[in-house]
Design a protein around this nucleic acid. Structure first.
Length: 501
RNA sequence: GCUUCCUUAGCUCAGCCGGUUAGAGCAUCUGACUGUUAAUCAGAGGGUCCCUGGUUCGAGCCCAGGAGGGAGCGCCA
């Protein structure tokens, strides 16, 4: 499954600026001699068939090697996975001068030269340098990123530099592609993108501990008349407010007017979660569709996920290839498998029956009415079915108040999509649209009606069946990239005791 | 929050039963090398053994406390 244990990422480098030009051409500070030529991205140059022309490229040095006759400088500008090879003839660019001017691992440079067919193996085109400018060098004795593998744990400590590594470059480009693919998918299906609030006045969204938002002073805040509590009427919003843990309730508002909507935004949970699958700040995608039932919801979730995986396979080949080789040899085949095969759909009750007769010993017993443990979900996905699984119709007592009650009065129309290595990647349900039943569920679960009066009015005026789900964006990126820790698929991870960068 | 493992050179790690001057690979530095692919070859420099206290003739190693990190679990997406 997903790779475990030591893993490496591959390098790249910084030092304070020396500004040097390494040719005999006239040069003035703040007036680059190459300014008559437009820069071209490395990605574009590598794909170019228009050779023997003058080009200008700007990026960061990944490696420099060679001998006293010829020097090779790999330049990467982040436009794609691959670097372009710059060939510097020693007559014009002696090694000592390249070193003295800081053309080393990590330096930011501009290179002017001729784009030619490569004389060597390993690349089709290269640049014969005629001019090299160093914007900023990187002291080789202190720059943390070396021309070698680094552990992901080490790179987490230098999150400001890790985007320069092959691994994080690949992950961040894939992350972008997936964000684009999300909007692309929904737009093509007639969904509208709704911006739900980040600051919420409700603490009853039912998805965990919340971060408080306040402008009251932390020393001696105003108290209520009887001095028993902080007086939030004097706070910025006139009430206690928090960061959102879900956009779902507001998305339902929009779905009851626009039909098919989705949200895609930051989500905050103040749980003390220390796992490779949880973040305190993460991005969540929540489609909500009027007149959809649980079947429609499952169909949407499966089609959506397959479409995203397919997009990655088609558009992120270089980056995925690298991750496949470096971290997880089965990544590409697993992605293809997900696209090619139907997800296994079964009810919670059916799953419990399978688990009860399973030969595997579980640490925790399986019993109808209790929530499935990670080990149970993993068994179903990775051992029993060996494919993504959608579990439905959970006992009502272990699910949220807003899920639609089945006729058996025992289960609700919930669904969890379980992926190999990730566990729950999607959680969703058909929503309870019956006002009386919803009020009963809220009362039973101690959800205060007065805080959600507006949510209840959706059932009072023009209520309709509807369904939706939440997809954890970072969990999707985990699956697509084959990375094993969620802190490595977001540029600046937020988790307990950590908000450094 | 719980369980468990870990912390030794810039990085990744080894270090025997507690014993004299703590090692390796990579990186860095110096030199060699006519097209390299994380180039290669030779040599050199580089240590608060996480911190504090204790046991001992003697502690990187044993004990206690603290700090930081990983993995697993719970909460969930």
């Amino acid at each position: 499954m997903l790779g475990s244990g030591r893993q490496i990422a591959v390098f790249a480098p910084l030092k304070t600026s020396t500004f040097a030009v390494l040719s005999d051409l006239p040069f003035q500070k703040n007036n680059l001699p190459m300014s008559d030529l437009r820069k071209t991205s490395v990605q574009e140059l590598l794909c170019s068939t228009d050779l023997d022309r003058e080009v200008l490229v700007k990026g960061w040095v990944r490696t420099r090697r060679g001998n006293k006759y010829v020097q090779f400088i790999a330049v990467n500008d982040g436009s794609g996975f691959n670097s372009i090879q710059v060939v510097a003839n020693a007559e014009q660019f002696p090694e000592e001068k390249l070193k003295a001017d800081g053309v080393e691992n990590g330096a930011a440079v501009a290179v002017r030269g001729k784009l030619v067919a490569s004389q060597g193996k390993g690349q089709t085109v290269e640049i014969q340098a005629s001019e090299i400018t160093v914007y900023g060098s990187a002291d080789t004795t202190t720059y943390p990123l070396q021309k070698k593998g680094h552990s992901l744990e080490f790179l987490r400590d230098i999150a400001h530099l890790r985007p320069r590594t092959n691994t994080f470059g690949a992950v961040l480009r894939i992350r972008h592609a997936m964000a684009f693919a999300v909007h692309n998918y929904f737009n093509s299906k007639g969904f509208y993108y709704v911006h739900t609030p980040i600051v919420t006045g409700s603490d009853a969204e039912g998805a965990g501990q919340m971060f408080r938002v306040t402008t009251l002073p932390d020393q001696n805040p105003p108290l209520t008349e009887d001095k028993s509590a902080v007086d939030y009427k004097q706070d910025f919003f006139g009430k206690q407010t928090n960061l959102t843990v879900s956009g779902q309730l507001e998305a339902e508002v929009a779905a009851m007017a626009l039909g098919k909507v989705y949200t895609f935004g930051p989500t905050f949970r103040a749980e003390n979660s220390n796992t490779a699958r949880h973040l305190a700040e993460f991005w969540m995608i929540e489609p909500e569709v009027a007149f959809n039932d649980l079947q429609d919801n499952m169909d949407l979730a499966e089609d959506f996920l397959k479409s995203l995986v397919r997009y990655a396979l088609e558009h992120c080949q270089d980056d995925l290839q690298f991750l496949n080789e470096q971290y997880d040899k089965e990544l590409l085949s697993r992605l293809q498998f997900v696209v090619d095969n139907d997800f296994q759909r079964l009810t919670y009750t059916e799953a419990v029956e399978i688990l009860k007769v399973a030969k595997q010993k579980f640490e925790f017993p399986v019993d109808w009415g209790t929530d499935l443990q990670s080990e149970h979900e993993r068994y179903l996905v990775e051992k029993h079915f060996k494919k993504p699984v959608i579990l439905t119709d959970y006992p009502k007592d272990i699910k949220a108040f807003y899920m639609k009650l089945n006729d058996d009065d025992q289960t609700v129309r919930a669904m969890d999509v379980l992926f190999p290595g990730i566990g729950e990647i999607i959680g969703g349900s058909q929503r309870e649209e019956d006002l009386t039943k919803l009020q009963a569920r809220m009362a039973a679960m101690n959800v205060p009606e007065h805080e959600l009066w507006w949510y209840l009015e959706l059932r009072k005026y023009g209520t309709a069946p509807h369904a939706g789900f939440g997809l954890g964006f970072e969990r999707l990126i985990l699956f697509i990239t084959g990375m094993s820790n969620i802190r490595d698929v977001i540029p600046f991870p937020r988790f307990p005791k950590s908000a450094e960068f």
